[in-house]
Design a protein around this nucleic acid. Structure first.
Lengths: 250, 250
DNA sequence: GCACAACTGAACAATATCAGTCATTTTGCG
DNA sequence: CGCAAAATGACTGATATTGTTCAGTTGTGC
């Protein structure tokens, strides 16, 4: 393996985890501790990381903005996004819905060895520079205000692909467990996404219980996993549980 | 194997993986280390890559081959782009090919009341904030280095749409009028674009006459309009004229 | 404070790669 | 066909990188 490749890999581990130990890097890169140390010295000289006893951490200036946002406590949406990211396994292909919640999820998927399918242009911009993630855009008519693509092209594309998991956002969940959306044009898209994935994961922070919306996307029975906050409560959540939805707390 | 073919292959490996080792290239291209090194020296002189111990990595300025190309030959290409923009009428829908030339064309389409269809992500970024232009992305697998989307999704999308005009880029025009490209994966896309538009406009500055390329996209008879520089000359241009192509000077 | 484990830095040997040279083969051209 | 130029592959001494070893240091639990 080329030294540069190793350096890139070390940085990938660092940005993903925030820190990395020499022994972990040894096994991950199949090399000796001496080489890793030499690499770390080199990278420290470049100023991209700081060496600490046993490994290295990202240099303060190198922390990506989303990482800082992610570590702030009390951000209910980010709790959900972070919890959802733990569901994704290496090698999988995931379908990300339109909206800000899935954009936040994408920010937690940096450096992962996965394929992301989406019509969410915010996700595209988030992951555009990430070499690890394979990115597939669904196409469609660009809606600037929503940073997304919609229309028959998007729906057609969804019929041609298959994902291991779809991460769905929503405007709210009604007390009967119905998943609702505000934007009528998105509903057929969301339904097409449901059909294109093996597992349906709904991202809904506690503010979505109960929640309104003009149009019904689907009922609780179509959802496999609900990711929400630990302190979420309400009839909608109970309805989800009764429908056999696995509930994951952020 | 021809040196040019080897160089193209080396670049393909590099853009795909980000780095390549001499030994890997040896076995992949079935040649000796000495030859690979000579190739790398040559390519490094061109500024395309940076040699490192054990192999090569993409040159820092080269990580986005797109941006590099975009800066070269500024005026020559921009003459062509500006002239091409005059062909577009309000209310039309235009299909823009992958590449830098069409990106430049897009820069001249700001504020126009038109619909732009493209798989060129540089065009998307150029026009994303322009309220006047309706933007439709074709979808597909994102190729970061080329700022484009390719693959069967893109081709499928092209079969579903119809444009008044397609603006096509190319690596070069041969003396017999054949339009050539370097990137094999783009050829079926370009052919699908030809089929999806009523009029085919080829953008080719004087540097493209004569020009090489691995794969043939189409012959002169498929082109309706050629936009080039005023001082362009050569057998390829004559072949175009003989085939009845309307030639527009920038 | 002390013992113990883990980590570090430096030196060294082994290995891999590099640049240069030279013989051989291929290519282009009259 | 023959010749010259270019490209290729093999060899060699020089250089760079890597893994190992070991003495010294740091961190941790008692």
């Amino acid at each position: 393996m080329l030294p540069q490749r190793r350096h890139a890999e070390i940085l990938r581990c660092l940005t993903q985890e925030g820190s990395a130990s020499v022994t972990a890097l040894c096994s991950q890169l199949a090399t000796s501790a001496a080489t890793i140390r030499r690499d770390l010295i080199c990278l420290e000289r470049e100023g991209v990381l700081t060496r600490v006893h046993g490994g290295a951490v990202l240099a303060p200036s190198q922390e990506r903005p989303f990482d800082r946002v992610a570590r702030e406590d009390g951000d209910v949406k980010d709790e959900v996004a972070r919890a959802a990211a733990t569901l994704v396994r290496d090698g999988e292909s995931v379908l990300l819905d339109i909206g800000t919640t899935t954009h936040r999820l994408a920010a937690h998927l940096h450096g992962r060895d996965i394929t992301v399918l989406t019509s969410n242009l915010a996700v595209y911009e988030e992951l555009a520079d990430d070499q690890a993630v394979e990115l597939i855009l669904l196409g469609g008519v660009v809606r600037r205000n929503y940073r997304s693509m919609v229309g028959f092209l998007t729906e057609d594309a969804l019929r041609q692909v298959r994902a291991d998991r779809v991460f769905l956002g929503a405007a709210g969940v009604r007390d009967d467990g119905s998943v609702m959306d505000d934007t009528v044009v998105e509903v057929p898209l969301k339904r097409a996404m449901l059909a294109a994935a093996d597992q349906v994961v709904l991202l809904a922070d506690r503010g979505k219980f109960p929640g309104g919306g003009l149009a019904r996307i689907c009922g609780a029975e179509e959802i496999d996993v609900l990711v929400t906050n630990a302190d979420t409560a309400g009839a909608g959540l109970s309805a989800m549980r009764e429908a056999g939805v696995e509930v994951l707390d952020g």
